[in-house]
Nucleic acid binder design. Structure first.
Lengths: 140, 140
DNA sequence: CTAGAAGTTAAAGTCAGCTTTAAGTCAAGG
DNA sequence: CCTTGACTTAAAGCTGACTTTAACTTCTAG
């Protein structure tokens, strides 16, 4: 498989494949006349990388757990440790997003005299951390 | 108020304030001997910007709805339209994160013979969109 | 044989949201 | 007056994940 085809099948551009290679995520394949030739396994590898990326792992995290990973082995403790960490990160992000959504909806339905009041009513005035919105300005 | 003080009260660096000014988010204040002097209102403005930023709005979106916004006016239709759009964006992101979390947890508890199998079992093989994880490999 | 599609490289560009740097000016205390 | 700290500017740097560009080379179809 040439790079263009690999890229196409993985839904990427050739430049992304070369980039992954440069980062050490993808082993340099053998070459024919200077051009990269990939085995079908390479597609699995790229798809695995994309999968992990979609899971929210950064490329460096992916490199970390792909190094020394045999694809045809059970999910190991290294993977699990990273996955556990990522789960809690995702949970945090979800919690934050939910608070965000509530705030936005309050704003949407509020009848405050001013935006300023409205924002203040949501309990964010001081340092603007998204603390749990205590009072809703909808009630006014 | 000098820029350092404004920045400190808003929990930012002076450079961020100047950056906001350059972007047109903050009106250029008057100057004393070349130095910026801010009225207390400027703090409200900056806090409002930070609030919106924390809500997930980009600075250009914030510029959009701050332009022509009087702070002491009810939340207007322009705001509401943007907020509604953002609510659905946040909802999408939450939904995505929830799927992610489920997938990660499956991976965490799975006993598949291989990562490859595990990933495949989650119904992601083909194009790697995070479609609703149909089968769980935990069941194996 | 030749056109043109697709491959190669290194280096620079992109986006956001700032920060840092360099080189200089201003303000306040002793 | 002098030092020190806060201010000024424009321009460059940072992170991440790539893409684009420029200048070439190689492959493939006709």
């Amino acid at each position: 498989m040439k790079i263009g085809q690999l890229a196409h099948r993985a839904g990427l551009r050739a430049s992304a494949i070369r980039y992954y290679e440069r980062l050490g995520l993808l082993a340099p394949p053998h070459r024919v006349g200077g051009q990269r030739r990939y085995s079908p396994d390479a597609l699995d590898r790229v798809l695995l990388i994309r999968f992990a990326a979609e899971m929210g792992f950064s490329l460096s995290e992916i490199k970390l757990f792909l190094s020394g990973l045999r694809e045809n082995a059970p999910v190991g403790p290294r993977w699990k440790k990273l996955a556990a960490k990522k789960v809690s990160e995702v949970e945090d992000s979800i919690a934050r997003s939910l608070r965000l959504k509530t705030l936005l909806q309050n704003l949407l339905h509020c009848r405050c005299a001013s935006l300023k009041q409205c924002v203040a009513a949501l309990g964010l005035s001081e340092n603007l951390r998204l603390v749990s919105g205590r009072a809703s300005c909808v009630a006014r």
